[in-house]
Computed example of a mutant assay.
Amino acid sequence: MDANDGFRELDRQECLSRLAEAPVGRIVYTRQALPAVLPVNFSLERDGAVVVRTSAVSDLVSAVDGAVVAFEADAVDVTTQSGWSVVVMGPAALVTDPVEHARLLRTGPRSWVPAPQEVFVRIAPELVTGRELVGGRTLYGVHLPS
């Protein structure tokens, strides 16, 4: 961390710990050759993979299956002007194995908008990065006025 930028880089384990506490994140993907961002609830696997449950007929499924995507979650405290952000990047794939699908039905994320036929999308954690804003509006331990 540069002494003046106010950010601290998070290591992989810290990133995954923060991510495990977040109730909602955002999947970033390409839709019709343009960037798209969609908020989703999710679960985190032990290896750091992000799992999203969605409708089998959603536009999201066809757009991300086999594509490299980013997934971001964060927490912000506006009072202290502090927070963190974690990004997971890697290929997304539809879970097609029946045994794995059955396991995720029991242990995976619950859909906030249930659909007649739901599928799971797994994002492999090829790159996991994160940073924390420490101190908010402080400089060298002195609180700065807003």
Rank of each mutant, 00 (worst) to 15 (best):
P109K: 08
E45Q: 15
R18F: 12
S62R: 09
S85N: 01
D47T: 11
E132Q: 13
E45C: 12
D47M: 07
P109M: 03
R53N: 09
S55R: 10
L34D: 03
E72I: 06
D47R: 10
E72K: 00
G48N: 10
G83A: 06
G135S: 12
A75R: 14
A93M: 08
L144Y: 01
E100A: 15
G66I: 02
S111L: 05
M1I: 04
L144T: 07
S17E: 13
R53K: 14
T129M: 03
F42G: 11
L60V: 02
V68E: 07
A3C: 03
D65R: 02
A20N: 09
D2T: 08
D5K: 08
N4R: 14
V78L: 14
A3E: 13
V95I: 14
S85C: 07
G48E: 06
V134D: 12
G141N: 10
T30G: 10
D97P: 07
V69F: 09
E126P: 01
D65V: 01
V69A: 00
D5F: 06
V119K: 08
A73Q: 07
L19F: 04
D65N: 13
V142E: 13
G66S: 06
E126I: 00
R106T: 12
V121Y: 03
Q32A: 15
V87H: 02
D77I: 05
A63Y: 11
S58Q: 06
N4K: 12
R137G: 06
R103Y: 09
E126M: 02
A93C: 11
F7E: 02
T96N: 11
A102K: 14
P114C: 08
A3G: 05
N41C: 10
S17Q: 14
N4F: 13
P109V: 11
V119F: 02
R12I: 05
V142K: 13
G130R: 12
I27R: 00
L133I: 08
P125S: 12
G141V: 04
A75D: 15
H101P: 01
S62Q: 10
R103K: 11
V64D: 00
L144A: 09
L94K: 06
F71L: 09
A102N: 10
V52G: 01
Q81H: 15
E118I: 06
Q117V: 14
N4V: 08
P109T: 11
P39Q: 09
Q81P: 00
V142S: 13
G136D: 06
E72Y: 03
E45P: 04
V142Q: 13
L139R: 15
S111G: 08
A124H: 11
L133F: 01
F120M: 07
A102F: 10
V76T: 14
I27E: 00
N41V: 05
F71H: 03
V37M: 15
S146T: 13
V64F: 02
T79L: 13
